[in-house]
């Protein structure tokens, strides 16, 4: 489903932020996501440590 199709549907979608093709690609790019996996885990560990 393309972003442009959604924009044409109604004003709800027109007022939203939607990802570009590059942003969508990066969401499932294994190499980039491995880096994000490490970064998000570090963020989570900090929050867990503050909570216990």
């Amino acid at each position: 489903m393309s972003v442009e199709e959604n924009f044409a549907k109604n004003s709800e979608f027109n007022l939203s932020m939607v990802p570009s093709k590059f942003a969508s690609f990066m969401r499932t790019c294994v190499i980039w996501q491995f880096i994000r996996f490490v970064a998000i885990n570090l963020k989570m560990i900090i929050v867990v440590r503050k909570s216990h």
Binding site: E5, N10, E12, M17, P19
Partner: peptide
């Protein structure tokens, strides 16, 4: 809200 509406819009989910 911006992130949640974005996820719905991207997927064509009305709210």
């Amino acid at each position: 809200r911006i992130m949640a509406e974005s996820l719905f819009s991207e997927r064509g989910i009305h709210w």
